[in-house]
Design a protein around this nucleic acid. Structure first.
Lengths: 213, 213
DNA sequence: AGCTTATCCTTACGGCGTAAGGTCAGTCAA
DNA sequence: TTGACTGACCTTACGCCGTAAGGATAAGCT
């Protein structure tokens, strides 16, 4: 994982990894059946690093904190972001899912609403972080990159794209939420409205039911 | 792209692609500097397939239709999903961005709200589709896969995960939105509330301003 | 006729995942 | 004490990969 963090997952080859461990490439195959297994386990360790809410925390705060924790962890291990939704579900992922799903269910959401809410949240976390890690290195190179992008951009054809990049350059105001948090609040607000009597998206089906187990 | 659609982007090697074209691998380097360029262009073509809203369509319907179109296109070219947010911004992506940003701006959103809304939308589209393509093949194998997953799952430790998978198996009710549309509506609802007088997430800063250009 | 240019080819290198089949020290029952 | 077993590791080799370097060929233009 140190290797992946430093040079990306492409740098994790059986030969290089073995070299770091002072052994030969083929020796790794006594601990792992295929390279894919190795990577799957690495990804699961990343997910395992996400701090989970203690049982009993009110759902909105718990979900908010967990989403932010997940975002932080994924930024620390950017190589894992495109893999996290496609890899085998193991211990770490199960624990993560269970915690979020239990939080929603205990918070009063129906099985269906919980199901949908979980995916909406996960999509935001992974999708947003995927975008972030796709463009970002540090703030400075990002800014200079954005400037040179703006210079080459035909403004007459793409005025709104230009404005969009300028928004990036402007940064955010003192009380404005992070870009990540903006989308997160949108989703949490939407979920909160599902619990209100009039309901939100499809109030008929997604309202409260008795929790399982 | 036919090769990538059929066998995934890993099957697109310079030798195999050249073979399909009846030429040698190295000949491709007269049309493309690096393999990365080739893949970037393929991804941009995928984005170019997304139907964009005609100028003047009311923002909410326009965004909804575009998001669904993007989702469909990405499902058709699943190999492109993890790449789309990290690849070079070219013609196709610029047109896509311009259309969405213009829709929001014309719809009355401030530069900042437009900026945030764009990313929230994009994160959902890509994040959700990444999850979908990570698990899904066809409905039937998915179902049998889910059943065998449930059998191996220790229910006492992960009761909510079990319920979650059962929700998948149950499928959705007749009037229930798609999972993709559920998250989409959450985001569109949230954006709509930004336009109301009282504002939504951070009403102070994100309210309307004069559009650019 | 000669030059330019676009297109394609050949050969070669170092690196990849991994199949197949060792070696060798420690463990433990008889 | 011995001998089979086991787990950790190594060696060699195969067929892939991207691409560097340096032609070949044929069409079009002056």
């Amino acid at each position: 994982m140190a290797l992946a963090d430093a040079e990306g997952v492409a740098a994790v080859t059986m030969r290089r990894l073995a070299g770091r461990l002072g052994i030969e490439a083929m020796s790794l195959y006594h601990h792992v059946a295929r390279k894919e297994d190795l990577v799957d386990r690495m990804v699961d360790r990343v997910v395992g690093e996400i701090d989970l809410p203690r049982a009993g925390t009110p759902w909105r705060g718990a979900l908010r904190a967990t989403a932010i924790a997940a975002h932080d962890v994924l930024l620390r291990h950017a190589w894992a972001v495109p893999l996290v939704l496609g890899s085998q579900v193991r211990e770490g992922r199960l624990r993560y899912m269970e915690a979020i799903l239990a939080t929603l269910r205990t918070g009063g959401f129906s099985p269906s609403a919980t199901h949908h809410g979980y995916h909406a949240l996960d999509s935001h976390i992974v999708g947003f972080t995927l975008w972030e890690t796709g463009i970002a290195l540090d703030e400075a190179t990002l800014a200079s990159q954005a400037v040179s992008f703006l210079e080459g951009l035909p403004r007459d054809r793409f005025p709104h794209v230009a404005e969009h990049v300028e928004q990036h350059l402007a940064g955010r105001g003192p009380d404005e939420p992070t870009e990540f948090e903006f989308g997160l609040e949108l989703i949490l607000d939407g979920l909160a409205r599902l619990l209100e009597p009039e309901g939100g998206v499809d109030g008929q089906q997604l309202r409260r039911n008795a929790p399982p187990g």
